[in-house]
């Protein structure tokens, strides 16, 4: 319990900070993140440019704030996509059983036989390297894990007596599903969705770092890191701050995810 509050607190603060930064970036940034300045190229952090400027003289802090928006937005849409599709597929699969389940799970397993990032790479080749391409690619790549988890939860719930009690009361399958099965799947869905948010942000920055994500000049943490790479010897801050942003965000999500898992895991609840 003690570790829960600490994990949850630190994680919560980090994520709140991320969302807040992204939100502020919508209305205000210290400088225009796109504005080039040839007089202030590769300027070290100073009072004017708190986190320095990049090779085109653009303000790093402003670009990081806009980058935070990209991360939050892409993360949010990806997770929503995977959660909605995965939950539907998992529910149908777990509830229908029989050959429907067999077919769905065979396809699901085949997709899970690809390492997530590899499938995303392949899908990016189809959708094109841009923001929405990434969202679809990652969303599709993550859907199978969500479907698997939801299906597992449904299968174990089906064995629980309260689902049988619902049948004995004469409730229809759909009613039972919506009233009893789905609400009790929310815990594992929440835990997984939280981790997925982290995976999505990490994958997005990795893909952007490879040049397959959001194309420059729009700033994301990944492509800022890639762009700054040739200059890191003269301008350490270009390699430091975008990476730090990603790392702190992931740390926040991981801590929050741990806290959620401790809290929502039924086994933990059983032990009190």
């Amino acid at each position: 319990m003690k570790t829960f509050s600490l994990n949850g607190l630190i994680g919560g603060i980090l994520i709140a900070f991320l969302v807040l930064t992204a939100a502020i970036g919508l209305v205000w940034t210290p400088f225009d993140p796109m504005k080039l300045s040839f007089t202030a190229k590769l300027a070290a952090p100073s009072a004017a440019h708190l986190l320095g400027t990049d090779e085109f003289g653009r303000d790093v802090l402003s670009r990081l704030m806009i980058g935070a928006q990209a991360s939050v937005w892409i993360g949010f849409l990806t997770v929503s996509f995977a959660t909605i599709c995965g939950t539907l597929i998992g529910l149908v699969s777990g509830y229908a059983r029989g050959w429907v389940d067999g077919v769905i799970m065979a396809v699901n397993n085949a997709l899970m036989a690809f390492p997530g990032i590899l499938l995303a790479l392949g899908l990016l080749a189809v959708f094109g390297a841009n923001q929405y391409g990434i969202i679809f690619a990652l969303g599709i790549a993550y859907t199978p894990s969500m479907a698997r988890v939801v299906r597992g939860a449904v299968l174990s719930l089906r064995e629980r007596e309260f689902i049988e009690a619902s049948r004995v009361m004469g409730n229809g399958e759909i009613f039972t599903m919506v009233r009893h099965v789905l609400p009790n799947c929310l815990a594992p869905i929440t835990v997984l969705a939280t981790s997925m948010f982290g995976w999505a942000i990490l994958s997005e920055s990795a893909l952007s770092f490879l040049g397959l994500g959001v194309p420059p000049p729009a700033p994301t943490w990944g492509n800022m890191l890639a762009a700054g790479r040739p200059f890191i010897q003269q301008a350490v801050w270009l390699g430091l701050f975008p990476g730090l942003c990603i790392a702190l965000t992931l740390l926040g999500i991981n801590l929050l995810g741990d806290a959620l898992r401790d809290r929502l895991d039924p086994r933990m609840r059983g032990l009190k």
Binding site: L202, S205, A206, F209, L225, R229, I232, Q233, V236, G239, L240, P242, G243, L244, I246, A247, L248, L250, L251, N254, L255, D258
Partner: peptide, 22 residues
């Protein structure tokens, strides 16, 4: 462990490169 797994490998690689290499 939690901190380590939160560090993206490409950034960690860059930092190590910067430190040990450059």
């Amino acid at each position: 462990a939690t901190v380590l797994l939160s560090i993206p490998t490409f950034w960690l690689g860059l930092l190590l490169l910067l430190f040990f290499g450059l």
